[in-house]
Simulated assay, not measured.
Amino acid sequence: MPDATDTDGLTVGQVSARLGVTVRALHHWDEIGLARPSLRTAAGYRLYTAGDLERLHRIVVYREIGLGLDRIRDVLDDSAADVPGALRAQRAQVAERIDRLQRLGAGLDRMIDAHERGLLLTAEQQAEIFGPRWDPDWPAQARRRYGDTAQWRQYAERSASRGPEEWQAVADAMTGFERALGEAMDAGVAPGSPEADQLVERHREVFASYFPLTRQMQVCLARMYEADPGFAAHYDGIRPGLAAWFRRIVDACARAHGIDPDTAAWE
């Protein structure tokens, strides 16, 4: 390596500041022979010439567009290298990454909306799927009441991945359960009977489409169905007194599993 005076060329630190690359990267490129400084001072310090700097500029550009160091060496040093072909291939990979990131961004937008709104359906879609007794303000009410709970987060994560078809399946399952509930009440099914307990278990299974429901949480939910005017009107619209009867069969099933309904907590 030729000697140079202290004023010739640029030091590693100066090149690092000018190109925005780390000194460590410059040392590494020197060690692997990708970009070696052409000069050395009398004191032994390496210096980069204008030609070295031009090569480094090209390395930085190629690295920023995603080429690996071995591929960069080929592009710079192999006279037979297909540079346009290499760049086109890299552009195709970049396009794939952009598409992937756009899909990720769209998914994040849906997740944010689901956490803030609950249902990602229009009021018209909700009425079509959940029926004329559905109140489109219910999701907003639930967000205000339960938005800080783990159950709301679980519900939002499920909601973000569902479209109208998936929600229709959930609604159909709940409608089928409510129909069976009304028929059991008409038939005089007694709380604590095997038939009643099967309905209680079916409710937990269907409700799991929203979030996992423990037995204690189910007791609290059944009590809310009876006490809340909106929910009570919904269930009593299916059968008069159905909200209270549902609470009774849930309480009886809870007692059979060692849970006191009077002290059950949301946990």
Results as ranks from 00 to 15, higher is better:
G176A: 12
D113N: 09
D70Y: 01
E183W: 06
Q216T: 14
V200R: 05
A35C: 13
A256V: 00
W134K: 01
V61T: 13
H57Q: 13
G105M: 05
E96T: 11
Q14F: 10
Q125D: 08
Q125M: 09
P240M: 10
G131E: 05
I238T: 14
A208V: 03
R71M: 04
V75I: 11
R179M: 02
L101V: 15
I32L: 10
R73D: 09
A187N: 08
G85K: 08
I65K: 05
Y235V: 09
T5D: 15
E166T: 13
W152R: 12
Q198R: 14
G44V: 07
Y48S: 04
R247T: 11
D109W: 00
E165I: 12
L39Y: 07
S161Q: 15
G237S: 12
P194I: 01
A140R: 03
D6T: 14
L47V: 12
Y235D: 05
L67W: 04
Q151G: 06
V94K: 07
G118Q: 05
D99S: 15
A264G: 00
R158D: 13
M111A: 12
W138T: 01
Q154M: 15
Q126T: 05
P132R: 04
A265F: 00
Q126C: 07
R145G: 07
R110N: 07
G241Q: 11
V219K: 07
Q151R: 14
R204W: 02
G9F: 09
G68K: 10
R144F: 09
P2L: 15
H203Y: 09
Q154S: 13
E64H: 12
A92R: 15
D3I: 15
D135H: 02
R153S: 14
R204L: 08
Y155V: 03
P84R: 01
Q93I: 08
T41N: 02
D236V: 11
A42D: 12
Y62Q: 06
G176R: 09
R55N: 03
G9A: 11
A222M: 11
M174G: 00
T149N: 08
L242S: 06
E201K: 02
D137S: 14
T263V: 00
G107R: 09
A42W: 01
L120Y: 12
G188H: 06
D236K: 07
F231G: 02
Q198P: 00
A127E: 06
F207N: 07
P37H: 06
E178M: 08
G176P: 01
V12F: 06
D99I: 05
V200L: 03
L199T: 02
V12Y: 05
E195T: 04
A264F: 00
F130H: 03
A150T: 13
Y210R: 12
I72K: 04
R248N: 13
G258H: 01
Y146T: 07
P2A: 14
P191A: 01
R36I: 10
A127I: 01
Y235W: 13
D137C: 03
T49F: 04
A4P: 05
A184M: 07
I238E: 06
A150I: 10
L87A: 04
D6F: 14
R239C: 11
G66W: 03
C220N: 14
A171Q: 07
M174T: 03
I249Q: 06
G68H: 04
V250W: 14
Y225T: 05
A173Q: 02
W29F: 10
Y146D: 10
Y45F: 09
